[in-house]
Design a protein around this nucleic acid. Sequence first.
DNA 1: GCTGTTTTGTTTGCATACAAATGATATGAA
DNA 2: TTCATATCATTTGTATGCAAACAAAACAGC
Lengths: 144, 144
Amino acid sequence: MAETAEPVTEYVLDDQVGYVLRLASQRHAILFQKHVIGNLTPAQFSTLLRISQHGAVSQNHLGRLAATDVATIKGVVDRLKAKKLIETSADKTDKRRTLISLTAQGRELIEKLKENGRDITEATLAPLSPDERSTLLRLLKKIS
Amino acid sequence: MAETAEPVTEYVLDDQVGYVLRLASQRHAILFQKHVIGNLTPAQFSTLLRISQHGAVSQNHLGRLAATDVATIKGVVDRLKAKKLIETSADKTDKRRTLISLTAQGRELIEKLKENGRDITEATLAPLSPDERSTLLRLLKKIS
DNA sequence: GCTGTTTTGTTTGCATACAAATGATATGAA
DNA sequence: TTCATATCATTTGTATGCAAACAAAACAGC
């Protein structure tokens, strides 16, 4: 009953949380792209919603709100600006800052985006029961 | 009791599965980078393990095994080759194919990587009980 | 054998994502 | 006030990740 070195348990890549997180994210990305309006990316979508929630924000602050790196948020902001969904203005009290806010067009889009986001979440969670959905959310938040 | 349009439920970005998947992936990526040996990325790590499991494979097949796009797997293979962990040879029966296999150095690394991978998974899942861990894995696979 | 279709590998373009470094500006403490 | 420190925005470099298009080779059906 002793003797042999117990093989801890075989290492199965498909059972590692990082790998499965990647697979789930991949499927969600496909569904997102399929359903999203305006050719927005997930990063652009989240960023728009954060501005809508928070009002005018600096770029760095916006990055923190949307869990996006400073180097990455710049590109996102540039592209949203090119799409005329956001606009920038100088912060009078702090010359380092650029205030970012929604354009009229951006504000108009927000409600549609929320509806859109619900559809995307629904499609992603379709294989799960209501209980499983809340459990998944709870556990994902716990490891975040 | 009727009259007003029921607000479906407010749209809370932090409760959308896509956003939370991204947050969980971010934390995992940080832990991965902190613990991994040889400066491997998650993609490089998975790819090495797949070659180890499967033996010599073509590049496209390897991409499918590791859930990595053909355009992406090329870069991963290039970098693993530059690190001298894998090597390529011509497929005699199919001139289109390049067979990819581990080098001696790559084979040597595999067992350490499995140990390493267990540590990374453990760190990522640390906030969860054993039951919660298997539930999370099960639900993630279900939406993949 | 021919031919239409697939598969394989490559390249380009776009969009995250993060580390690290830099310059400009703010701010707090000496 | 001045100086060390912190914050803001930007830039560079590296690595995924996917769409689209391409040439070469293989294959399936006739």
